[in-house]
Simulated assay, not measured.
Amino acid sequence: MDCFALGLKEFILLGYQGHPVLLFSAFLAIYLVILLGNGLIVVVTTLDPALHTPMYFFLRSLSGLEICYTSVTLPKMMANLILGDLSISLIACAAQMFFMLFLGVTECLLLVAMAYDRYLAICQPLHYMTIMSHKVCLGMVVSSFAISLVVHLLQIGFVFSLPFCGPNKIDHFFCDIPPILRLACADLYANELAVYAENILVVVLPFFLIVTSYAHITRTILRMPSGTGRQKAFSTCSSHVTVVCLFYGSATLVYFLPKTPDSVKIDKFLSLFYTVIIPLCNPLIYTLRNREVQAALQRIFNSKWQFKHKGAL
């Protein structure tokens, strides 16, 4: 018997309650900044030929992914706040969970691709452009999406085949696996085992590959004779390392820590962190200390200004 047979048609997302207008305004401002910041990276890395390199190809893919990732949760959360309707249909809940997991794990795999790119650039510079062709970069991005797609189609089917015969209130702001499993009235051993197995496959293993890449990178950088060279090499990796630590740190705490009565509030806060705050910070992390992106922005601005000025004349 599944949730359809039991007549369950919707869940209630309790989310963040109290001061709905204030919360709506805050989340709307955050959402617009995320769209603007990540959209700007996509536009700049597309328009400026100097940024048509593997590193910026992956950054453009990551920024586009962040826009989609945030759009899965924030619009629904804002609608719930302003309309006061906390319900989400069963099908919409399954779709939201699928896209959250699908895009989140794709981001994990993209971060691995970016770490490999930095490894080749610093540890194998003579072979870098030969190995990291556009075809290879595109293949790595497509493979990230394909692997995540297959894994989570199976995962969603596994979760929503469970019977839900108790309360339908989810103490969360989106449909995530841990709060949904808490509502199931069945033996969850197999499902929880599947979740841990999937997390090891698509979270722990990618993180191990990133750590291994940066171990080789650090060893190569420390062997560089020039202090300026070491500083430049570390600088090219610092933004990526920061994002990896923030994303993996918060996601790992949500999906791997043992569940306690107090973990619901902690999970909700950490989920907000990696679904909203990190996409908000990514453009700042990748642009504030990146001289190439700053120079590209200036070139695009200057060209538009000159074009407008000539048109006015």
Score class of each variant (00 low, 15 high):
F158G: 01
F57I: 04
I156Y: 07
P279Y: 07
L6A: 12
F4I: 03
S235A: 14
H127Q: 12
I67F: 05
P258H: 05
F269Q: 06
I221R: 03
F208H: 05
V142W: 11
P279G: 06
Y56N: 01
C165Q: 09
L109V: 02
S25H: 05
E10Y: 08
F98S: 00
R182C: 09
F307I: 00
I30R: 02
F24M: 02
F208E: 01
F160R: 01
K169T: 15
M55W: 02
H240R: 02
L201M: 14
Y189G: 05
F145W: 13
L297G: 14
A215E: 10
I12V: 13
L153I: 12
I277N: 06
P178S: 07
L205K: 02
V112F: 07
L288V: 12
V44M: 01
E66H: 13
Y128M: 03
K265M: 06
V142M: 12
P54T: 08
D267C: 11
M140A: 04
F102G: 00
S271E: 08
P279A: 01
T45A: 09
D176L: 13
P178Y: 13
C245A: 15
L222F: 10
H134I: 02
I221T: 04
T260R: 06
F234P: 00
F208N: 05
Q124P: 00
L222D: 14
C108R: 03
M77K: 05
E198F: 03
H216G: 05
Y248E: 04
T287A: 08
F173Q: 07
L6N: 14
D117M: 02
S133G: 13
I180N: 02
G311S: 04
Y274A: 01
L74Y: 03
L109R: 09
T212G: 00
A146F: 14
V105H: 13
R182N: 13
T218E: 11
